[in-house]
Amino acid sequence: MRLRTEQLSEHLAQGPLAPVYLISGDEPLLAQEAADHIRNTARAEGFNERELLHAEPGFDWDTVLTEANSLSLFAEKKIIELRIANGKPGDKGSRVLQEYAANPSPDNLLLIITPKLESAATRSKWVKSIEAAGVFIQAWPVPPGQLPAWIGKRLQQAGIQASRQAVDILADRVEGNLLAAVQEIEKLKLLLPEGEVDAATMSTVVADSARFNVFALVDKALEGDAQGASRNLRGLRDEGTDATVILWALARELRTLIKARESLDAGDHMDWVLKNLGVWEKRKRPVKMALKRLPINHLKQMLRLAGGIDRAIKGMRTANPWDDLTTLTLMFCGSPVLQPANLRLALRD
C-alpha cells in the first residue's frame, strides 16, 4: 500500500497496524510527524519497546533479522526503527528487507525512515516487497498554491482564527518552510490575545523585531556568545518584552538539547538526531556547538532553573525573573554561574 502523509491518520484510525512502514521524503516536518503518529499508535497497541538501528557504512544487516527474532525479557512487542541515511540499503540490505517483509513477526513493527527515494528506487524489489506487506508513505513538500490552506488548517488546530489575508501573509513569510510555519504558529499562540487575527495584526506580529530578537538571543546563547546574548537580553527587557516569551524560547531549546544529548549518549548519529528533532538546517551549527559544550547534567540543572523562573514570573517564588533569566542565559553560554549546591539555594521559595 502507498499513502500520502495526509492519508495516514485515517489508515491508523481504521487499523489494524501494518507490520512494516516505510517513510520517505524531503519534507522533514511531515516525515517526523508521520513517524511520531505511527510510534504513538503502536505504543497504544502494546509495542512498548523500541530498538533504533542506523544503516550506515559497515552496518551489519543481519542485525535487523536478529532483532526481529529476539524476544525481550518481558515478551513485549517491539518497534524496530531502521534509519537508512542515504536511502540505499545495497544488495545485502535489500535481501534482508525482502526476507523480513515476506515473513514479518506479529510481535514486531518495522519502521523504516529514509530521505526522498528517487523514482528508480521506488520501483526496486525491496520497496515493492514493503508495499506488498505494509505501507509506503511519501512525505511530499506542500506546493506553494496549497500552502495557505495548509497553514489555515494548522492555525485552526492551534485554536487560532485567522483571516484569509492574515494566512497569506504568514505563507509569504515562511516561503514553503513548514517547520518555520509551525514555529510561527507556536509564537502566535503565545503573543496574541484570543480572537481573530486579521492582516494588520499578523503583519505587526511577524514584523516585530523585538519579538523576533528573542530567537536571536537563543542563537547567541547556543553559540556561547555570553556578551552578545546578555546584551540582547537587556535590550529585550528595556523594550518591554514579556519575560514569559523569553523563558518559553529558552526552555523549548533546552528540552530539544536534552532529547538530543540523551539520543547521542545512546549512540545515535548527530545528523539523524537533529533531523528527527526538527532542527532547521541553518540552526544545526549553533545547536551542535551547544551540544559539544553542555553536558546532560548541566542541561538538566538549567531546566530546573527555568522551572524556578516560571514560578517567579507567576508570583509563586520570591525572586527577580530577569536576574534569573540572565543566569540561565549565561549558563547556556557555558559560564559556570551556578553549581548544584547553590542552585538548590537559589530555587528555594
Rank of each mutant, 00 (worst) to 15 (best):
50 R>P: 00
320 N>I: 08
60 D>Y: 00
274 L>A: 07
296 I>C: 00
33 E>T: 10
173 R>S: 09
109 L>C: 08
29 L>I: 06
282 K>D: 05
298 H>E: 14
21 Y>T: 11
224 G>D: 09
203 S>G: 15
35 A>Y: 02
115 P>Q: 05
245 V>C: 01
116 K>V: 03
123 R>C: 02
205 V>Y: 07
317 R>M: 15
241 T>F: 00
8 L>W: 09
333 C>L: 08
128 K>D: 15
294 L>V: 04
330 L>Q: 14
160 I>K: 07
193 P>N: 05
61 W>M: 07
295 P>N: 13
97 L>Q: 08
110 L>W: 08
315 G>M: 10
110 L>P: 05
255 R>T: 13
190 L>I: 12
63 T>C: 01
174 V>Y: 04
200 A>N: 09
266 A>S: 15
169 I>D: 02
100 Y>D: 10
99 E>S: 15
164 R>E: 14
344 R>K: 13
62 D>V: 11
159 G>T: 08
220 K>H: 12
295 P>D: 15
240 G>F: 13
33 E>L: 13
137 I>V: 15
302 M>T: 04
56 E>H: 01
111 L>V: 11
191 L>T: 11
174 V>Q: 05
265 D>S: 13
251 A>G: 03
119 S>R: 14
203 S>T: 12
183 Q>T: 06
143 P>F: 06
165 Q>H: 05
40 N>H: 10
280 W>F: 14
254 L>Y: 03
75 A>M: 12
257 L>P: 04
192 L>I: 15
293 R>W: 10
197 V>A: 11
17 L>S: 07
65 L>A: 12
196 E>Q: 14
141 P>F: 10
249 A>C: 07
35 A>I: 10
267 G>P: 09
298 H>M: 02
29 L>C: 04
28 P>K: 03
142 V>C: 08
134 G>D: 10
51 E>S: 11
336 P>W: 06
5 T>Y: 03
18 A>S: 15
198 D>Q: 04
118 E>F: 07
329 T>W: 05
307 G>W: 05
267 G>K: 03
72 S>Q: 07
157 Q>G: 00
331 M>Q: 13
341 A>H: 10
121 A>L: 05
109 L>G: 09
198 D>N: 15
286 P>V: 10
201 T>Y: 00
53 L>T: 07
94 S>Y: 03
208 D>K: 01
282 K>G: 01
51 E>L: 14
77 K>M: 06
164 R>S: 13
293 R>T: 06
336 P>S: 08
185 I>V: 13
219 D>T: 13
111 L>M: 07
153 K>M: 04
62 D>H: 03
276 N>V: 02
258 I>W: 01
102 A>I: 02
189 K>G: 08
121 A>K: 10
294 L>P: 02
47 F>D: 07
320 N>W: 01
216 A>T: 15
31 A>P: 01
270 M>F: 09
345 L>W: 10
255 R>F: 02
23 I>L: 15
339 Q>Y: 08
100 Y>S: 03
249 A>D: 10
96 V>K: 02
154 R>L: 10
96 V>W: 02
329 T>I: 06
174 V>P: 03
97 L>N: 08
323 D>C: 02
228 G>S: 07
104 P>N: 04
79 I>E: 06
46 G>P: 12
20 V>L: 14
129 S>G: 03
105 S>C: 03
187 K>M: 12
6 E>G: 00
234 R>T: 13
76 E>L: 02
192 L>M: 13
304 R>I: 01
44 A>L: 08
13 A>L: 12
4 R>K: 14
145 G>A: 14
305 L>G: 06
